[in-house]
């Protein structure tokens, strides 16, 4: 029994260490966003406290417009992937034809294992060959495959636990397919759909790789702007901006958590 307890304690220590390692860098980047730096450059040594980085970030017009564009793209991406991803996740389990179900699931698995950079160059070439000019809509469209699969897999997991007899009962009682969807399926899936949609939003807003290939000088997103500005040395403003994003992400995920809880209890 004492051996069991010591194994357990050792595992607990490893888990605590893991959490510490995961969170320390995040806390440090928050800390460094208040670092004064030297000559407007970020330094590894803390040189004094200042809020200047936040003022700099706020006054940087291209940073602000990139953040705004990224926000708009993420909203469009979240809406599209919420709708299409949910339909996808539902059809993966419930479509009448086994071949269609297999094809839809196969597409999902393919997307899960697809390295982002491969998808990014493919989309860039595709848009180029079709003669579609890169812009807001192409960027949003390019984000959707990766975010749709997130929604689809979360919704699929929920559909698998959904009692099929509920839908059959509705059908026996003469409800139309639309009515069954609206009154039975959608309410049951809503928590999963909302969780997936929020994740789609954060994935789109934080995406670096696909955005790096599909943004243009006039339509850029915050991560891409920060990523490319890193080539000229790290300004403290970068840390201020990422800290603000971190705060926003935590708020959004917190809301998602509350929504999830509120909708699953009822």
């Amino acid at each position: 029994m004492t051996r069991l307890r010591s194994t357990r304690a050792a595992l607990g220590v490893v888990c605590a260490l893991g959490l510490a390692v995961l969170y320390l860098p995040l806390l440090l980047s928050v800390l460094y966003s208040f670092n004064q730096g030297i000559d407007g450059r970020q330094t590894a040594r803390l040189t004094g406290w200042s809020l200047r980085a936040y003022a700099d970030a706020w006054q940087d017009d291209s940073l602000r417009s990139a953040a705004l564009t990224g926000l708009q793209v993420a909203l469009v991406v979240a809406a599209v992937s919420g709708l299409l991803g949910s339909a996808w996740g539902y059809a993966m389990v419930r479509h009448a034809s086994a071949r269609v179900r297999r094809a839809l699931a196969g597409l999902g698995y393919l997307l899960v294992i697809m390295p982002e950079v491969v998808l990014a160059v493919s989309l860039l070439q595709f848009a180029g060959r079709l003669g579609v000019p890169l812009g807001f809509l192409t960027l949003a469209a390019a984000h959707t495959p990766m975010t749709m699969v997130v929604v689809a897999l979360i919704v699929r997991a929920r559909v698998l636990t959904l009692d099929r007899r509920l839908e059959d009962a509705g059908r026996d009682l003469g409800a139309s397919e639309l009515r069954i969807l609206g009154d039975i399926v959608v309410p049951a899936l809503l928590p999963a759909v909302l969780t997936g949609t929020v994740l789609a939003f954060t994935f789109s807003f934080d995406d670096v790789v696909i955005s790096a290939f599909l943004t243009t000088p006039s339509v850029s997103t915050l991560p891409v702007y920060l990523y490319s500005s890193l080539n000229y040395g790290t300004a403290p403003a970068v840390y201020a901006a990422t800290t603000a994003v971190l705060a926003l992400t935590i708020v959004v995920l917190g809301i998602a958590g509350l929504l999830h809880r509120a909708t699953t209890v009822t």
Partner: peptide, 19 residues
């Protein structure tokens, strides 16, 4: 454990630059 994964990848890599 999962929360850092859903925050920006860029932030998490960037902080290692100073560390």
């Amino acid at each position: 454990i999962l929360l850092p994964y859903f925050s920006s990848f860029l932030i998490r890599v960037l902080s290692w630059q100073v560390i």
